[in-house]
Design a protein around this nucleic acid. Sequence first.
DNA 1: AGCGTGATGTCACTTGATGACATGACCATA
DNA 2: TATGGTCATGTCATCAAGTGACATCACGCT
Lengths: 187, 187
Amino acid sequence: MVRWEPGAGGRLREAAMELYVERGFEQTTVAEIAQRAGVTARTFFRHFADKREVLFAGSDDLLAALTRAVAEAPAEASPMTVVAAVLDVAGGLLGQDHERTRQRQSIIEAHPELQERELIKLARMSAGVAEGLRERGVPAPEAALAAEAGLAVLRVAFGGWVSASDPGDLRVAMRETLAALRKVTAS
Amino acid sequence: MVRWEPGAGGRLREAAMELYVERGFEQTTVAEIAQRAGVTARTFFRHFADKREVLFAGSDDLLAALTRAVAEAPAEASPMTVVAAVLDVAGGLLGQDHERTRQRQSIIEAHPELQERELIKLARMSAGVAEGLRERGVPAPEAALAAEAGLAVLRVAFGGWVSASDPGDLRVAMRETLAALRKVTAS
DNA sequence: AGCGTGATGTCACTTGATGACATGACCATA
DNA sequence: TATGGTCATGTCATCAAGTGACATCACGCT
């Protein structure tokens, strides 16, 4: 006889998504999430640092992929070229599962606490990319600027892609938005 | 005899800053802040929505100043020119009181919860500027990009200015950083 | 004097979050 | 087979954040 079903983390993620959709974020308690997942509230907090974190489970993987993309970019590439490569990777990873992403994003946009968490995750991405650029020999301010510019592109492109009724490839949107950024900043 | 000393909000801000410096953010309770300010914990929450907000009291004024700067920019100015004007205003307001700002920032940087709050405040600035640009007739994606680019400049310039041992005028740093952004994105 | 208003205090309560300890399935190894 | 360790979980206790409801009382106005 099993003492507990495996995969508690995944079940908690599912349950949380469902409940956040059904009643909203503040209206659902951790106890309810845990109950639906068949575990205790205490177990919830062993899998996720807090009630918000459950919506941002994949972000560590994304960060890792982005920093890898920085490291693996051609040595002669300019900082913005590296950032473009990073955006391509990000677009590939974020641009799957439009419907699910859209649902998740609508939860986040309805709750400032969740937006805060999302913003700090994105800030960590930017910081990670900047650090990677510095390790490639890019001077610190230039690295930070390139990374922040990339973040600007990502935010705008992703926002448009999520809210689009007929979304194309997010990577394409990223490239177009990067081009638009170049045009805007040049004016 | 006065029933209570006026200026509870200001006293709470002072007390919170002091305690956050003395023991760190999580180690100080709202009850302690309130006690030092001579009020009740309940009163703290009447002045500030939560324990973090007390560090971001001026941000509404800043946002208002920035949106005003957008509205008051010359009609023929390009989006990035408007953003440059906004950055000048931001630099003027944020660039006072280096020592106090530095202290406040060191508290924020030591606590992710506070970084989250700061990021959402900045995101609101960006959103406000973008909205102002749209009201000037700038197409939505371009407006968002210009505002986000401005935010990138602000973050990098402000970060450098805060950590500088001998800070110059933040507005100058803003202009230089904006020029650097133009150079970086153009590569 | 009477009256409303506004900032505060008091109390009770829910919920998020954490520490300490117990439990029992699973695994390796003697 | 037995023994012991590990790991995920449960249980219990506790603290602190945050909120709603109601009382209080100085002040200004009429």
